[in-house]
């Protein structure tokens, strides 16, 4: 791994992935000794091309890996210093790790309000109402559509709802998987603005998994780049963004140069 200057906050990190290796079936290694840290209230991006192992990493962290016939072959996943490897996904969510899965997974037949209520179901009744109000403050659009069936909303609104639902549980860290997938650039830009607000409003740490490196680097403090199951680059966002390697493969420098040459 090529480490660029600086490491995340020194005290116990919120989420820590230590030398994690994961395999599917008997042989196929999907992750090899991956290290990753999300500090308290930090925004960390996990970048990489398709098939680099991002999905595997997020599945492992969120406890879904067993459902996909994968197994942890080494290392550990710590949430506030406690191991969460091997716990069921719903348990991990209840321990404070919110999930915004890929593909805008909302409850289509439930109303917006009900979606948020399910998201906040792990909170005591008294704090739930307060929390929902805070979510509505952040996403006024959801408040307008309170009683609408989620399935009838636009893609961008559904993504917003998925975010809101995860936030309703007052998570300390939010796992956000491929937010930009299948959404128009304008909408993606708007939702990324909301992500910034999430940290300001709630102090929630974010782990953003994203194929679109430029977008993610725009809001994170720290970034990791995954390639073929290994972290090949890690460092503060601006250093990663400036690195040669990043330009080569993700930020389109090669294409620009080719265009200039041709």
């Amino acid at each position: 791994m090529m480490a660029l200057n600086g490491t995340p906050a020194a005290d116990t990190p919120l989420l820590e992935v230590r030398t994690l290796s994961v395999a599917y079936g008997r042989k196929a290694v999907a992750l090899n000794a991956v290290n990753l840290t999300v500090p308290k209230a930090g925004v960390v991006a996990l970048l990489g091309a398709n098939g680099a192992g991002k999905t595997t990493l997020i599945r492992t962290v969120s406890g879904l890996i067993r459902l996909h016939n994968g197994a942890i072959t080494g290392g550990e996943v710590l949430l506030e210093g406690k191991s969460i490897a091997g716990l069921s996904a719903d348990r991990i969510v209840r321990l404070g790790m919110g999930q915004v899965p890929e593909g805008r997974l909302v409850f289509k037949n439930l109303t917006v309000e009900e979606n948020l209520q399910v998201g906040g179901a792990i909170l005591p009744r008294a704090t739930l109402a307060e929390r929902l109000d805070a979510v509505y403050d952040l996403f006024p659009r959801l408040a307008e559509r309170k009683d609408q069936a989620a399935g009838l909303m636009s893609g961008g609104e559904q993504q917003m709802l998925a975010l809101g639902r995860a936030l309703a549980a007052s998570p300390r860290v939010l796992l956000i998987d491929e937010l930009s997938l299948g959404l128009a650039p304008l909408i993606v830009g708007a939702i990324y603005q909301q992500l910034k607000k999430i940290r300001e409003h709630f102090g929630t740490a974010l782990l953003i998994v994203e194929q679109n490196a430029r977008l993610a680097l725009g809001i994170c403090d720290y970034a990791y780049v995954l390639e073929r199951g290994e972290i090949v680059l890690a460092g503060p966002a601006e250093l990663v963004a400036a690195s040669e390697r990043m330009h080569e493969s993700y930020l389109g420098a090669r294409a620009e140069r080719q265009a200039a040459a041709g």
Binding site: Y24, G25, K27, A28, V29, N32, A52, R228, E230
Partner: peptide, 14 residues
């Protein structure tokens, strides 16, 4: 390091 792309295709299914 094992390459993911090749090892995936070699995934054995009983």
């Amino acid at each position: 390091m094992t390459s993911v792309s090749t090892s995936r295709t070699a995934m054995p299914i009983d």
